[in-house]
Amino acid sequence: MSVLLEASELNMHFKGLKAVNNFNAQIEKGSICGLIGTNGAGKTTVINMLSGVLVPTSGKIIFDGKNITGVRPDKIAKMGITRTYQNLRLFKKMTVLENVIIGAQMHDKLDPLGIVGNTIPHKRREAELKDKSMEMLKVMGIEKYADHISGSLPYGSQRKLEIARVLAADPKLLLLDEPAAGMNPQESAELTEIIRGIRDRYGLTILLIEHDMKVVMGLCEYIYCMAFGEIISEGLPEAVRNDPKVIEAYLGRGAVHAEN
């Protein structure tokens, strides 16, 4: 298997705060990787750097053989990295379907003649965008909401909509920031299946931030665990779960001794 994304010695410092320190990771094509860690560990900051929202203080990101460090977010998106947001960033006034169409139209070139003249190819393309977006809504199981204003959806469905929206953009690498946050156990079990399904169906590579260990253990083939801006442990799920350093980070120093 080849490496799709390689981050080497990434640093993100906000004034004095070292939010991410010396982050190194390699993500295999077609894999689902997990990024776990305590609150404020710097996980979201890593995704912000990979998607171009933040420019790293130093370090290098290679995606698909190209150096994308410091490249504008819209260009990175077009190269094939899309992401969702921990705090949900839907286009709240648009309908659910329109939200997904924004993703679906990402690779389209501007077609001024088609827009002004409402030409036949333009109409056909609009219809295609709609069909494709509907398909994505079906994949995520929220097609019944298609015509509703996205801001009015139940919380869990809003999270699914964010995934549908980026899925429509034909990404190579999907960065999911806590997709199961706020879902009940049944919903997150459902979501686990959906995520596995889209990986298989669309040949995606996925990097997943998640606090819900059931989701993480159920999906991830490789896990990075962060605390205070640094990777403290990485490896196969079982190995990371049993790593004393990880237990210590989550439960405090006493926990490690108590277990032994």
């Binding site: 929202v53 977010p73 819209d74 998106a77 960033r89 929206r165």
Partner: peptide
Amino acid sequence: RGLIAMRDDDVAAQTLG
């Protein structure tokens, strides 16, 4: 649609190309 998306949430719009 792109314009409206940008108005509603510029960060999300940007990461959607």
